[in-house]
Amino acid sequence: MQTIRALPLLLLTAACKPPPDEAQHMPQASAARGIAAIERSGCGACHVIPGIGWPQGRSGPSLEGFADQGLIAGRLPNRPDLLSAYVRDAPATLPGTTMPAMPISEQEARDIAAFLYASGDR
Rank of each mutant, 00 (worst) to 15 (best):
A6R: 11
A6Y: 01
A6S: 05
L7W: 14
L7N: 13
L7I: 12
L7G: 08
P8A: 12
P8I: 12
P8D: 03
P8T: 11
L9G: 15
L10V: 04
L10D: 06
L12D: 14
L12C: 13
T13E: 08
T13Y: 12
A14P: 02
A14N: 01
A14T: 05
A15V: 02
A15E: 06
C16L: 12
C16Q: 13
C16R: 10
K17P: 05
K17S: 06
P19T: 09
P19A: 13
P19N: 04
P20Q: 07
P20E: 13
D21F: 07
D21G: 13
E22R: 10
E22Y: 06
E22I: 05
A23K: 15
A23Y: 08
Q24E: 10
Q24Y: 09
Q24L: 10
Q24N: 03
H25V: 05
M26S: 05
P27G: 05
P27C: 01
P27N: 04
Q28H: 13
Q28Y: 14
A29W: 04
A29L: 04
S30V: 10
S30E: 14
A31V: 01
R33K: 14
R33C: 08
G34Q: 03
G34I: 01
G34M: 05
G34H: 01
A37S: 14
A37I: 06
A37G: 08
A37H: 07
A37T: 10
I38F: 06
I38D: 00
I38Y: 06
E39I: 15
E39M: 12
E39G: 11
R40C: 07
R40H: 12
R40S: 15
S41R: 07
G42D: 10
G42T: 13
G42C: 05
G42V: 12
C43M: 02
C43G: 07
C43T: 07
G44R: 04
G44C: 00
A45M: 03
A45K: 12
A45W: 02
A45N: 12
C46M: 04
C46P: 03
C46W: 02
V48M: 07
V48A: 04
V48N: 00
V48L: 01
I49R: 00
I49H: 02
P50S: 02
P50N: 01
P50K: 06
I52N: 03
I52P: 04
G53P: 05
G53Y: 09
W54A: 05
W54G: 09
W54Q: 13
P55H: 07
P55T: 02
Q56Y: 03
Q56A: 04
Q56K: 11
Q56R: 12
G57F: 01
G57N: 01
R58V: 12
R58N: 02
S59M: 11
S59D: 02
G60K: 04
G60H: 06
P61N: 11
P61V: 14
P61Q: 15
S62M: 00
S62G: 07
L63Y: 01
L63Q: 08
L63P: 00
L63W: 03
E64M: 04
E64W: 03
E64S: 13
E64K: 08
G65I: 06
G65E: 10
F66I: 06
F66K: 06
A67H: 11
A67G: 10
D68S: 15
Q69I: 02
Q69D: 11
Q69E: 14
Q69T: 13
Q69H: 15
G70H: 08
G70M: 11
L71Y: 14
L71K: 15
